[in-house]
Simulated scan of single mutants.
Amino acid sequence: MAVEKGRGATLNGESQRFNLVQHIADGDWLDEVDLVDRQRPRLRTQVTVERPRTIISRNRSPDIAFTQSINAYRGCEHGCIYCFARPTHAYHDLSPGLDFETHLFAKPDAARLLSEELEKKSYRVAPIAMGTNTDPYQPIEREWNITRQCIEVLAQCRHPLFITTKSDRVLRDLDLLSAMAKDRLVAVMISVTTLDAKVARTLEPRAAHPLRRIDAIRQLAEAGVPVTASLSPIIPAITDHEIESIIAKVAAAGAREATFIPVRLPHEVAPLFRAWLKEHYPDRAEKVMAIIRDMRGGRDNDPGFGTRMRGQGVWADLIRTRFHKARKRAGFSGERLTLRTDLFRPPLDQAQLQLL
């Protein structure tokens, strides 16, 4: 299959984990379509409206810092080849490969559903995380504005919020975020995996340029919004040589802290990643996978709680040591940022106050 320009996955791939129907070419000519049609139309992003009944997802994983999250979208146009969320598309009988990047789902009722859930007497306040599965500021947010609508609800209710993104589009909502930051109600994590634009173009093809992300850190910090820089995932022999330079850069821009996770390749992500390596880094593909397996107990992926976020073995220890030394040189304290939960007012209370 020819590589799709501007997309991360080099193929679509298949999922058999849920006994879904496999898509088989209809006729001999379709089997040869890649040989015949060299000028086929470029893949276009398709968006389907999804109408869920609830919008807050709960998490009980012991090695994840948040307990509840909101995902305004399914699938992500950024196309990051390493994205651990890719396998979720199999639930829709879609591929974790190119389908994940081009067949997206939007939830336009998200803000209304959020408001309804926050109104319930049974609701217990805890920070809500956005960007935990797919990026809340991916390109389609420009038209749909679902992320901003949800932030408006949270800001009105004075509800704590964590945002993770690799897009400078977060600056569009600086008015809301800076106001929330004054009451310690928001923190943003910007993902900076590489400073090399050439690497970024294939690794995360539709995400913001690395220098635009650095500038987003600077502008957020200047507006009083606490920012953490995430180097996740660190990919051995691809991005690990940049650990020190990235940390120095984000510290100079005003980030308060930095964090990282070694690359994870759950389920269908592993074969997609191997195909990506073969296409873009054939000279070191085997070396990269050998180091990853060394960090993951001899497998492509280690799903175990605790170890999945840290890795194990000599290579994982080396990356961790380098990271912590660079972090210390940058002046990061390691202090955990906490948000306030005592200022929350349910939407109904807010409406009554406005009437008064």
Rank of each mutant, 00 (worst) to 15 (best):
L161M: 07
L161G: 04
F162G: 09
F162L: 14
F162H: 13
F162Q: 06
I163T: 14
I163V: 15
I163W: 02
T164L: 11
T164V: 13
T164N: 15
T164E: 09
T165M: 04
T165N: 07
T165K: 03
T165G: 00
T165P: 00
T165D: 07
T165S: 07
T165V: 06
K166W: 04
K166C: 00
K166Q: 03
S167W: 00
D168I: 02
D168Y: 06
D168E: 14
D168R: 04
D168P: 04
D168L: 11
D168T: 06
R169F: 13
R169Y: 15
R169L: 12
R169C: 10
V170P: 02
V170T: 10
V170W: 06
V170A: 08
V170M: 06
V170G: 04
V170L: 10
L171K: 04
L171R: 03
L171A: 07
R172Y: 11
R172I: 08
R172H: 12
R172D: 09
D173K: 00
D173S: 08
D173W: 02
L174S: 04
L174Q: 03
L174D: 00
D175S: 14
D175N: 10
D175F: 11
D175L: 13
L176S: 05
L176H: 05
L176I: 12
L176C: 07
L176M: 08
L176R: 08
L177T: 04
L177V: 09
L177W: 04
L177M: 08
L177Q: 11
L177E: 02
S178T: 14
A179R: 10
A179T: 13
A179Y: 08
M180I: 11
M180L: 14
M180Y: 12
M180G: 03
M180F: 09
A181T: 07
A181W: 00
A181H: 00
A181Q: 05
A181I: 07
K182L: 13
K182H: 10
D183G: 08
D183C: 14
D183H: 14
D183V: 13
R184W: 15
R184P: 08
R184V: 14
R184K: 10
R184A: 11
L185Y: 04
L185S: 13
L185C: 05
L185T: 01
L185W: 05
V186Q: 02
V186K: 01
V186N: 00
V186A: 05
V186S: 03
A187W: 02
A187H: 09
A187Q: 14
A187S: 10
A187R: 10
A187G: 12
A187M: 14
V188H: 01
V188K: 00
V188M: 15
M189I: 12
M189A: 15
M189R: 09
M189H: 13
M189V: 12
M189E: 12
I190W: 12
I190A: 05
I190C: 07
I190V: 15
I190Q: 02
S191A: 12
S191R: 06
S191D: 13
S191V: 01
S191L: 05
V192C: 06
V192A: 03
V192D: 00
V192P: 03
V192N: 01
T193K: 13
T193H: 00
T193C: 09
T193A: 11
T193F: 04
T194S: 14
T194G: 02
T194D: 08
T194W: 02
T194N: 03
T194V: 06
L195S: 06
D196H: 07
D196E: 13
D196N: 14
D196Y: 06
D196S: 13
